[in-house]
């Protein structure tokens, strides 16, 4: 039998109510209020989630880091050994244009998966490419910029830089790219010449990479071509002379 006492309504100045119930089987280590305070043990119900007495759980576990939180904003994933390049990239990118995600080799795959639908750009230096990240780079139109020697797993359209200044200039150029009046909108999407906002990660990549493109199958770009035609932009996605998919002016539509 277990008994607890609670103060009751103070109708006559003082009041106490007593309730009793059959206790659960007593464990070897009796739960304490301290455990309940952390949301564990038999007394947990006395300290409800979000209520007084309930202490919020926290942890410095790597999976809790904000950089791993799923997000649909345009993202630049920077993979390095120590994060120094990510700090510099953040300074190089115009404000509100993209979120910089600072990754290490061992968590780059997970962080890339949290960039929805995929990272707009991956920047790396002196690290190997994790298999999960390599798969994304192989299958999606991701701008890939690398400082120093290129590791295995980079796609054919990756750009390699030997000086940080050239890398930062290329990143800024991608952020500020304009093609036929189209340009990247802050945060996500592409603004057309008439002010219309088109959302689509593939189109963002094509605009930023122009005049270069992506060594990927044509089917990945069909939806972009359809959207561009629907909005009469005068541009379409097509394979160029180097067999990469890029933006090209579309043939004018003849109306009868």
């Amino acid at each position: 039998m277990s008994v607890r006492a609670l103060s009751g309504p103070a109708t006559d100045g003082y009041g106490v109510s007593v309730s009793a119930w059959l206790a659960h089987h007593t464990p070897v280590s009796t739960p304490t209020l301290a455990e309940a305070d952390r949301g564990h043990g038999l007394l947990r119900s006395l300290a409800r989630f979000g209520g007084e007495g309930y202490r919020v759980e926290f942890t410095d576990a790597p999976w809790m880091l904000g950089v791993r939180a799923p997000d649909r904003s345009r993202a630049i994933l920077v993979v390095t050994v120590d994060g120094e390049l990510a700090v510099a990239v953040r300074d190089a990118v115009p404000r509100r244009m993209a979120v910089i995600r600072d990754a290490r080799s061992d968590d780059a795959g997970e962080i890339a998966s949290a960039c929805l639908p995929w990272p707009w750009m991956v920047v790396g230096s002196h690290v190997s490419v994790a298999p999960a990240l390599a798969r994304i780079l192989r299958e999606r139109p991701v701008l890939t910029f690398w400082l120093g020697a290129a590791p295995d797993g980079l796609p054919g359209h990756a750009r390699i830089f030997d000086r940080p200044a050239a890398l930062f200039a290329a990143i800024r150029g991608a952020c500020e790219a304009t093609v036929g009046g189209m340009r990247l909108a802050p945060g996500s999407g592409v603004e057309l010449g008439d002010g219309t906002l088109l959302r689509g990660a593939t189109l963002e990549s094509l605009v930023a990479a122009y005049p270069a493109g992506f060594a990927l199958p044509t089917r990945s770009f069909r939806a972009v071509s359809e959207a561009l035609a629907r909005h009469n932009t005068g541009w379409t996605a097509q394979r160029d002379g180097s067999t990469r998919m890029t933006l090209v002016p579309s043939a004018p539509v003849t109306r009868r």
């Binding site: 904000g66 939180a69 120590d82 994060g83 120094e84 700090v87 953040r90 979120v99 600072d102």
Partner: peptide
Amino acid sequence: ARELRECPVIVYSQNIDAFNVRSQIQRSHP
């Protein structure tokens, strides 16, 4: 970063110039 992503956050520190501090902050809240 996980639950109130749209809330603007200002982090201030005496060591804000140190790249390892900035990197830790960015990994906690990009």
